[in-house]
Design a binder for these strands. Structure first.
Lengths: 234, 234
DNA sequence: TGTACATCAGTGAACGCGCGTTCACTGATGTAC
DNA sequence: TGTACATCAGTGAACGCGCGTTCACTGATGTAC
């Protein structure tokens, strides 16, 4: 009883909040994020519209919560993949402490699965920006967590003499968690991010339908090409 | 007077239609496509809401028209770039009939300029899909025109033995205008499309703000990497 | 264990808004003789 | 050149809708003595 600080009432509150978010996701899946309606959610839960204001200050707070959850779940998937790969390596070969990790191909698959699992969730995060919406700082922090795992997977080889690598070496604010990452690794992380987003968002938006090609194979080809870049691990 | 078939009244109609679309773009620029309102446009033009129904059957027809115009303008920009490069080559060196063309780097710059010129226009075409909206066939045809110019710029070198190229060789419905294009060229065209969309949409959506890097240089690096792909022209 | 009180979930009515769209109508612009 | 008619742009009122949000209130759940 004294184990958790959560009173029964608080537990109930959290339960209802979760159900609201669940219905919100269903609604987004059906008609996109812009059509999210508090009244509709309430009706679907068998209660009246204003009741939701006991749980969320307003519509914006609900949306922010959804965005946060989405980011969180992707970051967790990345972190879990890293942890799994780490323990695999440690168990199998001689553990020298820092080898292993999921690798870019592994993270790519995690990302794709996550995107396909719920395309609208992907678009809520990486889709057309909602005009006037700015993510609160704690969400930016989750994005940084995500980037950190990605940078870990970009163990870095030979640095290219100049050009873009130089620019990255001088503009690495975004890689704050890895102040010592070589430019080639930063470059690779960015390529991973932008290229896979390119394929995925085109696929999810349906731009390949009717083209007759298999998006999964295009995705894989892009992943392979990443490995062939200067700056990829062997 | 008998020179054009357009009566004065028809000319006026076209004029008003254009003005409606113009105001629509301004509105989209301010608040995104989902917030487009016929009544607001009418008010801005100094007329009453229902007046617009003389010019557009309904809201959907207006949006479709905007999407069509956006596609058309990008396709025209590609075609113009191709024509300009063609005539340059013909004038300069000995004209052997088929060399020249804008090159991938040239098209990439055209695409980027077009996207930056009006980000909301870009998102209207390549952004989060509007739920339930399906482009009419004539718009798909414009997309194909666009693809044709791109494939022309992908003059094709050594084909990779198997893997994704094989798949493309067998699934080339989308390259109908170029039935003889080698798989490596198809591959390159797809890479061009998806990668540049990746960088551009992240940039336009603001995902690089606060990262401290220069999106233009990342874009250029991606273009350069395209050239380094197996399948790019020398 | 029982009573008195405080907390809080949920309701129903209401406000004001803007939307897309229809309809009957006015008034100006064009056309035919 | 002048008159009679048809075309069509634009208006104003109206319909029905759903939205986010507020407010005063009821009734159940928890807490203190």
């Amino acid at each position: 009883m004294t184990g958790g600080t959560t009173t029964p009432r608080e537990r109930y509150r959290q339960q209802v909040r979760e159900e609201v978010k669940e219905k919100a996701w269903q609604q987004i899946a059906g008609s996109g994020a812009s059509a999210l309606s508090l009244n509709a959610i309430a009706k679907q839960m068998g209660m009246s519209g204003p009741a939701l204001y006991r749980y969320f200050a307003n519509r914006d707070e609900l949306i922010t919560e959804l965005v946060r959850d989405a980011y969180r779940s992707l970051a967790d998937a990345f972190i879990a993949a890293a942890a799994a790969a780490e323990s695999d390596t440690a168990a199998a070969a001689g553990d020298d402490g820092r080898a292993g990790g999921p690798g870019l191909a592994g993270l790519a698959q995690v990302l794709r699965r996550w995107a396909l699992e719920d395309p609208h969730r992907y678009f809520l995060v990486y889709g057309t920006p909602v005009p006037g919406y700015h993510a609160p700082p704690d969400i930016t922090a989750i994005a940084a967590e995500l980037m950190a795992v990605l940078l870990d997977a970009c163990a870095a080889p030979d640095t290219d003499p100049h050009s873009f690598d130089d620019h990255l070496a001088a503009h690495r604010a975004w890689a704050g968690s890895h102040p010592d990452a070589p430019p080639a690794a930063l470059r690779l992380a960015l390529a991973f991010w932008s290229r896979l987003h390119g394929v995925l968002s085109l696929e999810l938006a349906g731009h390949f339908t009717g083209m007759g090609l298999d998006p999964a194979r295009l995705f894989q080809a892009e992943v392979d090409a990443l490995g062939g870049e200067p700056g990829a691990r062997p």
